[in-house]
Design a protein around this nucleic acid. Structure first.
Lengths: 69, 69
DNA sequence: ATGTGACTGAGAGTCCGTG
DNA sequence: CCACGGACTCTCAGTCACA
């Protein structure tokens, strides 16, 4: 446990996005975030602000806790 | 509802911190975050990264969802 | 369809203060 | 004890070309 927050977010994001059957490109469009930025996030390579996470959560229809906890 | 994420975090943070009976300064020290930044966060005046929120949650002994949802 | 390095403007986060 | 400001450094947001 205690994986880095960014890795945790990345894993949750990838899991929830693929579970919804959406590509990074399509999802990026819905969340209004650049395609390569989504790629970075899923790899845990970025430390995003809560405003970005808020957009991710809304585009997925989940809570922020679902992405971060 | 639908308040800005930063305002939501600010309200939750202030509520949970005061419920724990701690001053901003003491709490800032425990979370290893500058005291003025805690003040800014509680007023919803900043858009922090998830690493900062993670430290806040740990210092309070709550989940990130408790602070953000 | 996704991963990655590089880039720039904007803003995250720190530290000095004051009322 | 807290709100708020100014000034600073360093990282994030957002984008591109290319693999």
């Amino acid at each position: 446990m205690e994986a880095d927050v960014c890795k945790r977010l990345g894993g949750n994001l990838k899991r929830l996005r693929t579970a919804a059957g959406r590509s990074q490109e399509d999802f990026a469009h819905d969340a209004d975030i650049h395609r390569t930025y989504i790629s970075d996030l899923e790899r845990g390579a970025r430390n995003p602000t809560i405003r970005v996470v808020d957009r991710l959560a809304k585009a997925l229809g989940v809570s922020m806790g679902d992405l971060l906890d």
